[in-house]
């Protein structure tokens, strides 16, 4: 029972990342009709926003300590972060410790700006081109973006820990009447799930309860008619591209403490996220979220030893197996609409 509950928690946590990325992908596809293979790179750039802020806050002045030597036998250069000097060692250390949550504030404008530049500078030229062209150009863009990050941050993962207050794990088991240490779950993963729920809820509320959102939804349903009403739908769709980039970026920022960011992390999520979008139904926002959590949970259960002992290797193919079954039985995905990506 304990293992079962743990895998549900794991599935919800994995599903959070899938759902956030798939939500952004679907926003872009649903509004602009573009299949954006650079979306994983936006997730990766978000994670590196956390790395960048952490490094900025750790910027240091240098002093030579003649009593100690470095690895070459030279007098040791001691680095002290400026924030220690400005706010005192304790407050300075606390500021650096909270770099990841603080990076949210930095990532939002940066990701929106990157989204704008991507859409206006490149992707708008491919609106009327076939999906294959869109895939090729956005995939190429993803490679360029990840190589830029590699050139600046190196190829190795960069550890970016959660604030000390959120390190360690919480004993859920005691809460549920189990013995201690049976169901423990990392604090930061719980934070990630809660954060994803807030972001997903926020995006849906924005689309559902604001005039802007209503126009965007109308445009997603019938772009031409909305245009005929004198509404500049293209401008709104560009803003939605920026919003989708921000969602992917924020998902990346908060993911940084879960696995050390590296330049390739976007590609690791990209294919899975596309499967999530297809299973959920192309262009369906609730479908993307539902499929994200569903596939996250199924992937976790497939990793259980009890399951693997019956079907060895099932953990490696479960997501694709489910995708095949769903597409055979419901070709438009779980919540896909008629006419989307259908000639």
């Amino acid at each position: 029972m304990g293992s079962f509950i743990l895998q549900i928690l794991n599935g919800l946590d994995k599903g959070s990342a899938y759902a956030l990325i798939a939500l952004g992908l679907t926003l872009i596809f649903g509004t602009l009709g573009v299949v954006n293979f650079a979306h994983g790179a936006l997730f990766m750039i978000g994670a590196f926003c956390a790395v960048t802020l952490s490094r900025m806050l750790s910027l240091s002045f240098e002093e030579v300590d003649p009593t100690k030597t470095d690895f070459l036998g030279q007098p040791l250069v001691v680095k002290t972060p400026y924030v220690y000097d400005w706010f005192g060692p304790e407050a300075g250390a606390a500021i650096i410790d909270w770099a990841v949550p603080l990076a949210i504030l930095m990532a939002i404008p940066i990701m929106i700006a990157i989204g704008f530049i991507m859409e206006r500078g490149l992707i708008k030229h491919f609106y009327k081109r076939p999906h294959a062209d869109q895939i090729l150009v956005t995939f190429g863009l993803a490679i360029v973006l990840q190589e830029i990050v590699k050139a600046n941050f190196g190829a190795n993962p960069v550890p970016t820990p959660a604030p000390t207050a959120f390190q360690g794990s919480f004993d859920f088991g005691i809460w549920l009447g189990f013995d201690p240490n049976i169901i423990i779950y990392p604090y930061w993963r719980m934070v990630y799930f809660a954060f994803a729920a807030v972001i997903i809820g926020g995006v849906f509320a924005f689309l559902q309860f604001t005039t802007f959102g209503m126009v965007v939804r109308a445009g997603m349903a019938d772009r031409e008619t909305v245009g005929l009403l004198g509404i500049n739908i293209d401008k709104r769709f560009t803003i939605m591209f920026g919003l989708a980039a921000a969602v992917a970026g924020l998902a990346g920022v908060m993911y940084a403490p879960i696995n050390s960011p590296n330049f390739h992390m976007g590609m690791d999520f990209l294919v899975l996220s596309f499967v999530v979008v297809v299973v959920g139904g192309m262009g369906s926002l609730p479908g993307a979220v539902l499929a994200g959590f569903l596939l996250g949970i199924l992937e976790s259960f497939a990793s259980m030893n009890e399951v693997k002992s019956i079907i060895p290797g099932i953990d490696q193919i479960i997501i694709y197996l489910v995708a095949i079954v769903i597409l055979l039985t419901r070709p438009r995905g779980l919540m896909g609409r008629k006419g989307v990506m259908e000639d």
Binding site: L6, Q7, N10, K14, I184, N259
Partner: peptide, 17 residues
């Protein structure tokens, strides 16, 4: 564990019990 795995949480969880 799959070579391409990035999140090992679902493999770590069974270790607990």
């Amino acid at each position: 564990t799959p070579l391409a795995q990035t999140d090992f949480s679902s493999y770590i969880a069974p270790v607990l019990n």
